[in-house]
Write a protein that binds this DNA or RNA. Structure first.
Lengths: 304, 304
DNA sequence: TCGCCTCGTGAAAGTAAGTTTCATCCGTGG
DNA sequence: CCACGGATGAAACTTACTTTCACGAGGCGA
């Protein structure tokens, strides 16, 4: 079969379909019928069996195979998967993000989900992009070396603060979180040089948090602020400022996007700290995981 | 095909791979080997013949077929085509290579940040893609109509539960969260028809949460499970199952990715519920925002 | 006009891929 | 210890794919 009329399609990155329609006129009548079906709906063709496709094109399987060879494929299965891939790729454009902005009043749930996910994922990505590794490094260093770490946050940011505290605790760092301002203030008053205080506030204007951070700083602790706004009041009482990048949104849930962004930053810090003492952290984590094991059912794999 | 353990993948527009990795723990060992190959390189798997793939996974063709059925496909050819399509769709950005997996021991902070952000953003996106709007709709409906809503979660998922509770509360829904199992059980015992109980557990095996949800269901409440694993025990006591799509990771912080994914789902539900009574919800939100205003400093401009 | 060649075609045979069935094995719980 | 149920691969079986081959329609030179 040295002189087979095969036209290579292996280096046709962008367009198997284009390729096929290009050499459509050079095909025999029966093959053209096949080609037209394929070009008209690649995804559908990919779903069909060779017999099925042959029938649809009013020809025999043999012709379909010949068609495959004519367009540079080894056989029908290969054509099939290439078609599936093609079809999937060119369905992309629904991605034409209707979702950039806010949620329209009449939106259905699918739209809502897409919008939220888009905003959330974006917030995470953009936050990571603008995070300054140098500042992170300093914060990680301070936390790793700290005698004790206080994490402050109110309302929604309180969850993040609490989460951070728990994480640090799990890798053996002495960390505290206080849901209540007064307790927090008391604690801050007991901080000193070498300790670290982290204040979390999306707006950067939460007076409770600022106040506590200020107190901590006055006592000589290293203060860290995590906020969405790099020039908000909280940054004035912080030695290190880390920012999130959640876009301003309306009432809906700028809160949530910012929450995710905050969590991402917290996670980075956590992993940074953990990486500093990998062995120790790993051991601590395993121990804590072990501790809750008895509260799990179906230890191994989960049944159907 | 009456009670086959098939989990439909037909409404999995975006994520067959995601779907498979979610199901992974519920598969038998031999099937898991197949699944891992497939997830690791879908495009490559699509190119292989069933015998070839079976050999590569050190198992028999029969097992590969079983795997296909387990993930909701009719047979191997269908899987192949779906995989090819998947693989084509995700023409990963070139910089994604470094960040796909886990964090190497010697990584610097910039690398760590990139990796975490990538995984986190991915978890959010993939979760949204595989969320079934129809199920969400039903859950939203139930919550919107509920006399009262209990949200359960332990450990890390507890934060999410608590967050959800707070959100619902803020738009005027009667919602509770209990950090303690006994209190939660007590509360569940008081639920009834028309009430809703939401159980959150990443692994789906947290016995405390399952127990409470079971109780709630026994009392006639509508039960909702939020987990990463569609066939975990918690799904057996839930009327509606919502899944996240955080990839399995090592010790580092699969936890965090899953947290973000959970929060995204919670946010979707929240917005869904809020959208049902837009005016009322907006009013409630404004009122709550007003309530904390006195705790903010520099109310006006905080920008440069 | 007739032969004879060429090419497109599908029927049918042949091969490989996919699917089902079934016996075996192994761990679990009585 | 046995019975049981699930997991598994060997082998039988079915379907899909591929090759072979013969037929028939045009084309072309004699």
């Amino acid at each position: 079969m040295a002189k087979s009329p095969k036209i290579s399609a292996s280096h046709e990155p962008g367009g198997l379909i284009v390729h096929i329609s290009g050499l459509l006129p050079s095909l025999s009548p029966a093959e053209q019928r096949v080609a037209r079906l394929v070009v008209a709906d690649p995804a559908d063709a990919a779903r069909r069996t060779i017999t099925d496709l042959a029938t649809a094109a009013e020809t025999s399987e043999a012709t379909v195979i010949r068609f495959c060879r004519s367009v540079g494929m080894d056989g029908y299965p290969q054509l099939r998967i290439r078609l599936a891939a093609e079809a999937a790729r060119r369905v992309e454009p629904p991605d034409a993000r209707v979702v950039g902005g806010d949620i329209p009043p009449g939106a259905d749930l699918a739209q809502i989900i897409a919008t939220i996910a888009f905003n959330d994922a974006r917030a995470v990505e953009e936050t990571a992009e603008q995070l300054d590794p140098a500042v992170c490094e300093r914060v990680v260093e301070a936390i790793a070396a700290a005698g004790r770490i206080d994490v402050y946050g109110a309302g929604a940011s309180g969850f993040v603060a609490s989460d951070f505290q728990q994480k640090l605790h799990r890798i053996g760092r002495t960390a505290f979180y206080f849901p209540d301002v007064h307790t927090a203030l008391t604690s801050a008053a007991l901080l000193g040089r070498g300790d670290v205080a982290v204040g979390i506030s999306h707006t950067g204007t939460t007076s409770d948090v600022i106040e506590v951070l200020e107190q901590a700083r006055a006592r000589g602790a290293t203060t860290v602020a995590l906020t969405n706004f790099p020039r908000s009041p909280i940054t004035e009482v912080a030695d290190h400022v880390l920012t999130t990048a959640a876009r301003e949104t309306t009432y809906r849930s700028g809160a949530m996007a910012s929450r995710l962004a905050q969590l991402t930053v917290v996670d980075c810090l956590f992993v940074g700290v953990a990486a500093r003492s990998r062995a120790k952290a790993k051991k601590a984590l395993e121990a804590t995981a072990e501790a809750v094991r008895s509260h799990r059912v179906g230890a191994g794999r989960r049944r159907a």
